[in-house]
Write a protein that binds this DNA or RNA. Structure first.
Lengths: 211, 211
DNA sequence: GCGGTGTGTTGACGGTGGTAACATTCAGCG
DNA sequence: CGCTGAATGTTACCACCGTCAACACACCGC
C-alpha cells in the first residue's frame, strides 16, 4: 500500500501533525475557535476518537494550536528585532511585527489570547515559557534604550521599567484586538491599517522619548 | 397563589429578567462565558426550552448579557466624566473608570469584547449604539483637550485625532485584558493593580501633553 | 513467527442547542 | 360568568458533541 508520499513514520502517518493542520485550517477558514473535535478528525480522515491517542483533551489540542501561534509570533518578533537598529527602531519594529502577526492571523490570535484556555495558569509549560520570554525580550529592549538615554526612563527604577513594558504591551495587544474585532474599522478606512498601526506605535514611542 | 412579591406581570413571572440574572450569576461565579443554555434555564427553575420564548438563540441571550455590560460600562464612564475637571483630568478619569470596570467584572468584560459574538457586525443594534457612543465620548474629550491646547494634537487634523482616540482605547483595552488574563501579575504584585493602572494611564497622558 | 505495544475504530453514554407538538394560563369581551 | 385566542411554559425528540471502554489492526524487537 505504498503511495507516492515519502516517509510515513507511523501506522497511518503523522496523525498528530495532521490533526493540528486540520484544526488550524478550520480556524483560519471559519475564523472561529469553537470547532468540534469530531470535525477536525473528519477532516483529517480519521475516526472521531483517534485524536485521543495524541491529545488528552480537546483543550490540549487547542493549546497545541495556540503553542504554534506563540512560536510563530516569537519568530516574527525576533526577526523584526534582528533587522532593526537602535532602541527606538527596535521598539518600533517589535510593535509592528506584533500587530502585523495579529492582524494577519486574527482567529489564531484570538485563540491565543482569548478565553479558550482556562486562565493563563494551567497552561502547558511550553506556552508559559514562550510568553515569559516574549516579555523578557520586550523588557530588554526598553531597558537597553533607557540605559542609552533613548527613553525618558530611569533604568534603575524597576517599577518604572515595568510600567513601560506593560504600557507597550497593552497598547499593541489592545490595538490588535480592536482591529481584529473590527471596532476600529469605522474610525478609519481598513486599507490603512498598517499606517494606523505605525502611527499608534509612534504615539507610544513619542511618549517614551526624553523631552 | 399570591406570594409576597409585587406585580408579576406575566404567566410565571418576569422570566426574561430571571434568565438574564441566572446567566450573569453563572458568568460571575464560574468566570466562563461558555455556559449551557440548559443550565441557565435549570437555575431559573424552568424547562430548557422556555428560554426560546424570550431569546431566539443562545447567542441572543449572550448578546443581551453583553448589552447590560455595555450599559454599565457606559454609566461608569459618564459618572467618571462628571466628577472630573479639565481635559487631562477627564481623560485620566475615563481611563481609570474603564480599567476599573473591566478588572471588577473580568468574565463579563471578556464576554463583551471576546469571541462569543460573531464579529462586531451582526450584533444587536443596541450594542453597536452603545459602542459607537462610547467612542464618540472619548473622541469628544480628546478633541476638547486638543482645542484647549492641553494635548499636542491638531484638533483640525481628523486623522491625528483618530489616532489619539484609537491609541487611548487600545491602551486601556489591552491593559484591561492583560490584567484579566493574569499576564501582568508576574510583572508586578497584584495588589498594586490600581497603581499600575494609574501609571499606565499616566504614560498615555504624558505622551499626549505638549512639549 | 510471535507477542506486546502503539495506533486507529466502533459503539455507547450523558449532555447540548434547537424544533415541534402539546399544555397551561392570562387578557379581553360577550 | 364563560368563551376564545394569544402568550407562555413543558414534553418529547433530533442531530451533534466530548469522552470513554472495548475491540481490531499493524508494526517492533525477539
Amino acid at each position: 500500500m505504498n503511495t507516492v508520499a515519502s516517509a510515513a513514520p507511523y501506522h497511518h502517518g503523522d496523525l498528530r501533525r495532521a490533526l493540528l493542520d486540520s484544526a488550524t485550517a478550520i480556524l483560519t477558514e471559519t475564523g472561529r475557535w469553537d470547532f468540534s473535535l469530531r470535525e477536525v478528525a473528519r477532516r483529517a480522515g480519521v475516526s472521531h476518537a483517534a485524536s485521543y491517542r495524541h491529545f488528552t483533551d480537546k483543550e490540549a489540542l487547542i493549546a497545541a494550536v495556540a503553542l504554534t501561534g506563540y512560536e510563530t509570533l516569537h519568530t516574527c518578533m525576533t526577526t523584526a528585532i534582528d533587522e532593526a537598529t537602535g532602541a527606538v527602531g527596535t521598539l518600533r519594529a517589535i510593535g509592528q511585527a506584533y500587530i502585523g502577526f495579529g492582524v494577519a492571523n486574527p482567529a489564531l490570535y484570538r485563540l491565543m489570547f482569548g478565553q479558550a484556555l482556562p486562565s493563563i495558569e494551567g497552561l502547558p509549560p511550553a506556552v508559559l515559557a514562550v510568553l515569559t520570554e516574549a516579555r523578557a525580550v520586550l523588557r530588554g529592549v526598553i531597558l537597553t534604550g533607557a540605559r542609552a538615554g533613548a527613553f525618558a526612563i530611569d533604568p534603575e527604577d524597576e517599577q518604572e521599567v515595568s510600567v513601560a513594558v506593560v504600557t507597550a504591551w497593552s497598547l499593541v495587544h489592545g490595538f490588535t484586538l480592536l482591529t481584529i474585532d473590527r471596532v476600529v474599522d469605522r474610525e478609519v478606512r481598513p486599507q490603512v491599517i498598517d499606517t494606523l498601526a505605525a502611527r499608534v506605535t509612534e504615539r507610544l514611542i513619542v511618549g517614551l522619548l526624553p523631552t
